[in-house]
Nucleic acid binder design. Structure first.
Length: 487
RNA sequence: GGCCCCAUGGUCUAGUGGUCAGGACACCGCUCUUUCAAGGCGGUAACGGGGGUUCGACUCCCCCUGGGGCCA
């Protein structure tokens, strides 16, 4: 392959950025970065009905959030622009006229009804319902007349029934389709707009795209696009069709399987680096063991020949695990920032948190430590730090607070904490262990009831850390309350 | 329906004619420990079926089955 690599990601702004689309974008981007090539963003907004500014914004934001920047495209420009198909219509019209003038395409005046009728007829004869090329050899005079009368028409590409259309896909290998399989398909619709295949092929050739990396769902479009390239007299790019992403039921991943848009995943607390890493591993692998890759490593190691050719099921559990791994790598400050909106939303922290509160949250985050897999986990993990009164989990309270020794033990503990000079983790631990020993209890037998009294739950971060952070006052108050309520 | 693609544990995958079929997530034990999480150790679990080719097939070929895609 000679020349500089040029790849593109070409979404339609008709919805959110789907995880499948995001992975396609990622593979293109990684390939470009690995090869020192150019990554182009092209917006395929020829469907004016469904394209929206909002979708466009959402897609662009999502790509940036993932860290996928483009060298040419909207907002950054480039020498091959414009990068919105809606602004490239003249180009499609010119190419279509060129092909028609050159005898490689022709206007077809058959109406949708006529076509449907003939298709039905062919079907009932047991034949494949394909266009019968009726308008292909119309007398030039008749064509002129119909055109001048303004009769609605489409433009079709002339195709041959002879031979096979063959190409080598980088991930699938040799692919061959019998030429007869493809009829004289439409390249320009009756409203003057290009069809998807035509617009894409024209743009890819004019933008000098060298490698088309896209979803498997476009595999069967490829022969048609190859035919367009040929008619245009352009050299076709290399193709790499990556397998689709499926839901657990092996059907194409869709909304009913869960969150499928990058925007949604972001709102749900997934970290971009986890998302990127997970997506990279869906359909690509480096070796027999590596799982965690930084963006730099991905760029360095990515290659198309290690892309799988089989569909992959999206596994939210593994993504969650990976998110936890990346959460651990984030600084405490980062985690505070991530966690804050959730504390606010839960009403545990009032909205613009002041400096004191931020400091406190920071210490909570430190105490919670690696238990945080998702930012929102903070609520369940630490609500007791923020509430005035704990809500007891009935099972936990029943199991630990009703023990006969709890009342007396708490009473002594309250007194000793009151006079404890070194009210810190170490001092508290010493005190607690000492007290347990004195009373002939195992440390756990004292600790568990204390945990329930302070947090309401049977599980929590380390109890000495919790006590230290909660503060002497609150700890004593909660111990007393639990004692009165249960013991 | 036609054409195209695909088939290793529940999931993501390594494997490119001779491996005890490896790793990761999930799951289950054990361990550490004040609980949970994390960590450490260990475990259950796979080559869809049938034909070939070959001394030998997960690996190559064909058929079937199953899944997916595109077009209709």
């Amino acid at each position: 392959m000679s020349g500089k690599v040029r790849v593109r990601f070409a979404p339609s702004p008709t919805g959110h950025l789907h995880v499948g689309g995001a992975r396609t974008a990622l593979f293109n981007w990684l390939f470009a970065r690995n090869k020192g090539g150019t990554f182009i963003l092209r917006i395929e907004d020829t469907d004016r009905e469904r394209s929206t500014e909002e979708s466009y914004r959402g897609i662009v934001d999502a790509l940036r959030w993932l860290g996928l920047d483009w060298d040419e495209g909207p907002e950054v420009g480039g020498a091959w622009g414009p990068y919105f198909q809606s602004e490239r219509r003249d180009g499609y019209r010119e190419r279509a006229e060129m092909l028609t003038a050159g005898g490689k395409a022709y206007p077809c005046f058959c109406t949708a009804e006529e076509l449907a009728e003939r298709r039905q007829a062919m079907k009932s004869l047991g034949a494949d319902p394909r266009y019968d090329r009726r308008c292909r050899d119309l007398e030039p005079g008749i064509v002129e007349e119909l055109l001048s009368r303004g009769k609605p028409h489409v433009i079709r590409l002339k195709t041959s029934d002879e031979g096979v259309i063959e190409f080598t896909d980088i991930v699938h290998g040799k692919i061959a389709v019998p030429a007869e399989q493809i009829d004289d398909f439409i390249i320009v619709k009756s409203d003057g707009f290009p069809t998807y295949n035509f617009a894409a092929a024209v743009d890819d050739s004019r933008m000098e795209i060298t490698h088309i990396i896209r979803g498997d769902d476009h595999l069967s479009n490829t022969p048609r696009q190859l035919l367009i390239y040929e008619a245009l007299g352009a050299r076709p790019p290399a193709f790499a069709h990556v397998p689709l992403i499926m839901g657990p039921d092996k059907a194409r991943l869709s909304k009913r399987h869960g969150s499928t848009s990058i925007q949604q995943m972001r709102d749900e607390g997934y970290l971009p680096e986890a998302m990127v890493n997970y997506l990279a591993l869906l359909g690509w692998s480096y070796d027999d063991s590596a799982q965690l890759f930084s963006m730099e490593e991905l760029i360095e190691k990515f290659s198309l020949d290690r892309v799988s050719d089989k569909p992959a099921v999206f596994d939210y559990k593994k993504l969650r695990w990976m998110n936890g791994e990346y959460m651990k790598k984030r600084s405490v400050e980062d985690r505070v920032r991530l966690v804050m909106p959730h504390l606010e939303a839960a009403g545990l922290v009032k909205d613009p948190a002041d400096g004191r509160m931020r400091d406190f949250v920071k210490r909570v985050v430190e105490v919670v430590g690696e238990r945080l897999k998702m930012p929102q986990d903070i609520v369940e993990l630490s609500d007791f730090f923020f509430r005035d009164e704990v809500e007891y989990d009935e099972k936990a309270a029943g199991k630990f607070l009703k023990r006969h020794y709890v009342g007396p033990a708490f009473r002594v503990l309250e007194d000793r904490l009151q006079t404890l000079h070194a009210y810190n983790e170490i001092g508290i631990e010493e005190l607690m262990r000492g007290l347990a020993a004195e009373m002939g209890l195992k440390a756990g037998e004292l600790i568990h009831p204390v945990r329930v009294a302070l947090t309401g739950r049977a599980q929590s971060p380390g109890i000495f850390e919790v006590m230290a952070l909660l503060g002497k006052e609150k700890v004593i108050e909660r111990l007393a309350r639990a004692r009165r309520a249960y013991a």
